[in-house]
Computed example of a mutant assay.
Amino acid sequence: MKERLLSILRGGDALKTPPPAGRMLYGGSFNPVHLGHLALIRYVIEHDLARSVLLMPAGRSPFKGTGQYAPAEHRLKMLELAVQGLSDDLQARIAISDAELRRPGPSYTAETLQSLDDGIDTALLIGADSLESFDQWKEADWILGRVPLYVVYRAGIDDAQVQSWRRRLQGFFPVANVYLIPFEPPACSSTYLRQAIATGAGFEQLKACLPQSVFAYIKHVGLYREEA
Protein backbone atom coordinates (compact mmCIF):
# COMPACT_ATOMS: atom_id res chain seq x y z
CA MET A 1 0.00 0.00 0.00
CA LYS A 2 2.76 2.43 0.97
CA GLU A 3 4.68 1.80 -2.26
CA ARG A 4 1.54 2.23 -4.37
CA LEU A 5 0.70 5.56 -2.75
CA LEU A 6 4.23 6.83 -3.11
CA SER A 7 4.31 5.83 -6.75
CA ILE A 8 1.50 8.24 -7.60
CA LEU A 9 3.01 11.30 -6.00
CA ARG A 10 3.17 13.79 -8.81
CA GLY A 11 6.07 16.10 -9.54
CA GLY A 12 6.78 18.13 -12.65
CA ASP A 13 4.89 16.80 -15.64
CA ALA A 14 5.48 13.12 -14.98
CA LEU A 15 4.72 10.62 -12.26
CA LYS A 16 7.76 10.08 -10.09
CA THR A 17 8.57 9.07 -6.56
CA PRO A 18 10.34 11.78 -4.57
CA PRO A 19 13.10 10.77 -2.19
CA PRO A 20 12.14 11.18 1.46
CA ALA A 21 13.09 14.58 2.78
CA GLY A 22 15.36 14.71 5.77
CA ARG A 23 12.93 17.18 7.30
CA MET A 24 9.43 18.33 6.32
CA LEU A 25 8.68 21.90 7.40
CA TYR A 26 4.99 22.32 8.21
CA GLY A 27 3.97 25.82 9.19
CA GLY A 28 0.67 27.44 9.98
CA SER A 29 -1.21 29.44 12.54
CA PHE A 30 -2.52 26.28 14.30
CA ASN A 31 -5.28 28.49 15.68
CA PRO A 32 -6.28 26.00 17.00
CA VAL A 33 -4.47 22.85 15.91
CA HIS A 34 -6.99 20.19 14.87
CA LEU A 35 -7.24 16.56 13.80
CA GLY A 36 -6.79 17.46 10.13
CA HIS A 37 -3.32 18.78 10.95
CA LEU A 38 -2.51 15.66 12.95
CA ALA A 39 -3.76 13.31 10.23
CA LEU A 40 -1.46 14.96 7.72
CA ILE A 41 1.55 14.76 10.04
CA ARG A 42 0.81 11.07 10.61
CA TYR A 43 0.51 10.45 6.88
CA VAL A 44 3.83 12.12 6.08
CA ILE A 45 5.66 10.06 8.67
CA GLU A 46 3.93 6.72 8.12
CA HIS A 47 4.47 6.94 4.35
CA ASP A 48 8.12 7.93 4.71
CA LEU A 49 7.80 11.25 2.91
CA ALA A 50 10.22 12.63 5.49
CA ARG A 51 12.38 11.31 8.26
CA SER A 52 11.11 14.06 10.56
CA VAL A 53 8.49 16.80 10.66
CA LEU A 54 9.22 20.27 12.01
CA LEU A 55 6.09 22.12 13.11
CA MET A 56 6.42 25.88 12.91
CA PRO A 57 3.52 27.92 14.33
CA ALA A 58 3.46 31.32 12.65
CA GLY A 59 3.90 34.51 14.60
CA ARG A 60 1.71 36.38 12.13
CA SER A 61 0.90 35.51 8.55
CA PRO A 62 1.39 38.36 6.06
CA PHE A 63 -1.96 37.28 4.57
CA LYS A 64 -4.00 37.49 7.82
CA GLY A 65 -4.87 40.22 10.27
CA THR A 66 -3.47 40.13 13.81
CA GLY A 67 -6.95 39.99 15.31
CA GLN A 68 -7.45 36.45 14.04
CA TYR A 69 -4.75 34.96 16.27
CA ALA A 70 -4.86 33.54 19.77
CA PRO A 71 -1.76 34.63 21.72
CA ALA A 72 1.40 32.86 20.60
CA GLU A 73 2.00 31.08 23.90
CA HIS A 74 -1.45 29.48 23.76
CA ARG A 75 -1.14 28.30 20.16
CA LEU A 76 2.24 26.79 21.01
CA LYS A 77 0.84 25.03 24.09
CA MET A 78 -2.13 23.63 22.15
CA LEU A 79 0.23 22.26 19.52
CA GLU A 80 2.38 20.63 22.20
CA LEU A 81 -0.69 19.03 23.80
CA ALA A 82 -1.92 17.71 20.45
CA VAL A 83 1.44 16.13 19.61
CA GLN A 84 1.62 14.55 23.08
CA GLY A 85 -1.54 12.64 22.20
CA LEU A 86 0.21 10.84 19.33
CA SER A 87 2.06 7.55 19.64
CA ASP A 88 5.61 7.54 20.97
CA ASP A 89 6.93 6.45 17.55
CA LEU A 90 5.35 9.47 15.88
CA GLN A 91 6.41 11.87 18.62
CA ALA A 92 10.02 10.76 18.22
CA ARG A 93 9.97 12.09 14.64
CA ILE A 94 8.24 15.41 15.36
CA ALA A 95 9.77 18.65 16.61
CA ILE A 96 8.07 21.96 17.38
CA SER A 97 9.85 25.27 16.91
CA ASP A 98 8.85 28.65 18.31
CA ALA A 99 11.28 30.50 16.02
CA GLU A 100 8.57 32.36 14.10
CA LEU A 101 6.71 33.19 17.30
CA ARG A 102 9.85 34.86 18.66
CA ARG A 103 10.62 36.78 15.49
CA PRO A 104 8.95 40.23 15.31
CA GLY A 105 6.72 41.19 12.40
CA PRO A 106 5.05 38.93 9.83
CA SER A 107 6.30 35.36 9.47
CA TYR A 108 7.95 34.75 6.11
CA THR A 109 8.81 31.21 5.07
CA ALA A 110 11.93 32.34 3.23
CA GLU A 111 13.36 33.80 6.43
CA THR A 112 12.50 30.63 8.32
CA LEU A 113 14.23 28.44 5.74
CA GLN A 114 17.28 30.69 5.82
CA SER A 115 17.44 30.28 9.60
CA LEU A 116 17.33 26.49 9.13
CA ASP A 117 20.46 26.44 6.98
CA ASP A 118 21.97 23.51 8.88
CA GLY A 119 22.62 21.06 6.07
CA ILE A 120 19.49 18.97 6.60
CA ASP A 121 17.61 18.23 3.38
CA THR A 122 14.34 20.11 3.85
CA ALA A 123 10.99 20.11 2.03
CA LEU A 124 8.00 22.40 2.52
CA LEU A 125 4.53 21.03 3.23
CA ILE A 126 1.62 23.26 2.20
CA GLY A 127 -2.10 22.98 1.56
CA ALA A 128 -3.49 23.13 -1.96
CA ASP A 129 -5.10 26.50 -1.22
CA SER A 130 -1.62 27.97 -0.61
CA LEU A 131 -0.41 26.65 -3.96
CA GLU A 132 -2.73 29.05 -5.81
CA SER A 133 -1.00 32.14 -4.38
CA PHE A 134 2.51 30.79 -3.84
CA ASP A 135 3.97 33.09 -6.48
CA GLN A 136 3.02 36.00 -4.18
CA TRP A 137 5.06 34.68 -1.26
CA LYS A 138 8.11 36.68 -0.29
CA GLU A 139 11.18 35.40 -2.18
CA ALA A 140 9.14 32.63 -3.81
CA ASP A 141 11.87 32.17 -6.41
CA TRP A 142 14.49 31.67 -3.67
CA ILE A 143 12.29 29.12 -1.89
CA LEU A 144 11.48 27.12 -5.03
CA GLY A 145 15.11 27.09 -6.10
CA ARG A 146 16.10 25.39 -2.84
CA VAL A 147 13.29 23.22 -1.47
CA PRO A 148 10.59 21.05 -3.04
CA LEU A 149 6.94 21.68 -2.28
CA TYR A 150 4.74 18.84 -1.07
CA VAL A 151 1.14 19.85 -1.60
CA VAL A 152 -1.76 18.19 0.19
CA TYR A 153 -5.30 18.32 -1.15
CA ARG A 154 -8.03 20.18 0.72
CA ALA A 155 -11.75 19.46 0.87
CA GLY A 156 -13.62 21.32 -1.85
CA ILE A 157 -10.63 21.70 -4.19
CA ASP A 158 -10.63 19.18 -7.03
CA ASP A 159 -7.67 17.57 -8.73
CA ALA A 160 -8.02 19.52 -11.98
CA GLN A 161 -7.83 22.82 -10.11
CA VAL A 162 -4.76 21.78 -8.15
CA GLN A 163 -3.06 20.54 -11.31
CA SER A 164 -3.82 23.88 -12.97
CA TRP A 165 -2.25 25.81 -10.08
CA ARG A 166 0.82 23.55 -10.20
CA ARG A 167 1.29 24.12 -13.94
CA ARG A 168 0.85 27.86 -13.47
CA LEU A 169 3.45 28.00 -10.70
CA GLN A 170 5.94 25.94 -12.68
CA GLY A 171 5.35 28.25 -15.63
CA PHE A 172 6.51 31.15 -13.46
CA PHE A 173 9.30 29.13 -11.82
CA PRO A 174 10.51 26.27 -14.07
CA VAL A 175 12.98 25.09 -11.42
CA ALA A 176 10.18 24.33 -8.96
CA ASN A 177 9.69 20.75 -7.81
CA VAL A 178 6.04 20.39 -6.82
CA TYR A 179 4.66 17.06 -5.59
CA LEU A 180 0.94 16.48 -5.05
CA ILE A 181 0.26 14.15 -2.15
CA PRO A 182 -2.69 11.81 -2.79
CA PHE A 183 -4.21 12.35 0.62
CA GLU A 184 -7.07 14.55 1.75
CA PRO A 185 -7.09 15.16 5.51
CA PRO A 186 -10.36 15.30 7.44
CA ALA A 187 -12.34 18.41 6.52
CA CYS A 188 -11.58 20.25 9.75
CA SER A 189 -11.35 24.03 9.89
CA SER A 190 -9.74 26.20 12.54
CA THR A 191 -12.10 29.01 11.55
CA TYR A 192 -15.14 26.80 12.13
CA LEU A 193 -13.78 25.58 15.45
CA ARG A 194 -13.19 29.12 16.71
CA GLN A 195 -16.68 30.19 15.72
CA ALA A 196 -18.28 27.09 17.22
CA ILE A 197 -16.43 27.53 20.51
CA ALA A 198 -17.48 31.19 20.61
CA THR A 199 -21.13 30.13 20.43
CA GLY A 200 -20.75 27.61 23.25
CA ALA A 201 -20.22 24.33 21.40
CA GLY A 202 -19.22 21.44 23.65
CA PHE A 203 -16.66 18.72 23.06
CA GLU A 204 -19.27 16.25 21.77
CA GLN A 205 -19.98 18.64 18.90
CA LEU A 206 -16.31 19.17 18.11
CA LYS A 207 -14.64 15.82 18.85
CA ALA A 208 -14.48 14.84 15.16
CA CYS A 209 -11.97 17.64 14.66
CA LEU A 210 -10.53 18.73 18.00
CA PRO A 211 -8.30 16.71 20.37
CA GLN A 212 -9.86 16.55 23.83
CA SER A 213 -6.69 17.90 25.46
CA VAL A 214 -6.82 20.95 23.19
CA PHE A 215 -10.52 21.53 23.88
CA ALA A 216 -9.88 21.33 27.63
CA TYR A 217 -7.05 23.84 27.35
CA ILE A 218 -9.18 26.24 25.30
CA LYS A 219 -11.93 26.14 27.91
CA HIS A 220 -9.47 26.46 30.79
CA VAL A 221 -7.83 29.65 29.51
CA GLY A 222 -10.95 31.05 27.84
CA LEU A 223 -9.80 31.24 24.23
CA TYR A 224 -12.03 32.24 21.30
CA ARG A 225 -14.92 33.46 23.42
CA GLU A 226 -15.19 36.69 21.43
CA GLU A 227 -14.74 35.22 17.93
CA ALA A 228 -17.15 36.88 15.51
Rank of each mutant, 00 (worst) to 15 (best):
P19R: 15
P20S: 08
P20Y: 02
A21N: 03
G22W: 04
G22Y: 02
M24L: 15
L25N: 01
Y26T: 08
G27M: 07
G27F: 05
S29N: 07
P32Y: 01
P32G: 05
G36M: 06
G36R: 11
H37L: 12
H37N: 01
H37S: 05
L38C: 05
L38T: 11
A39L: 08
L40H: 05
Y43G: 13
V44Q: 00
V44T: 14
L49R: 02
L49Q: 02
R51M: 06
S52L: 08
V53A: 03
M56K: 04
P57M: 01
R60E: 03
S61E: 00
P62W: 04
K64P: 12
Q68Y: 08
Q68F: 09
Y69A: 07
A70I: 13
L76Y: 05
K77P: 07
M78P: 10
L79F: 03
E80Y: 06
A82Y: 01
V83I: 14
V83P: 06
V83A: 02
Q84V: 06
Q84K: 14
G85L: 07
S87C: 09
D89M: 10
L90W: 00
A92T: 11
R93T: 10
I94R: 01
I94K: 00
A95D: 08
I96P: 07
I96K: 02
A99M: 12
L101E: 00
R102V: 09
S107V: 09
Y108P: 12
T109I: 15
A110V: 15
E111R: 14
S115Y: 06
D117N: 14
G119K: 06
T122M: 04
A123Y: 03
L124A: 06
L125V: 15
A128G: 08
A128P: 09
D129L: 09
L131N: 02
E132T: 11
F134L: 07
D135A: 14
D135C: 13
D135R: 15
W137M: 14
E139A: 14
D141G: 14
D141Q: 15
W142I: 11
G145S: 14
R146H: 15
R146G: 11
P148W: 03
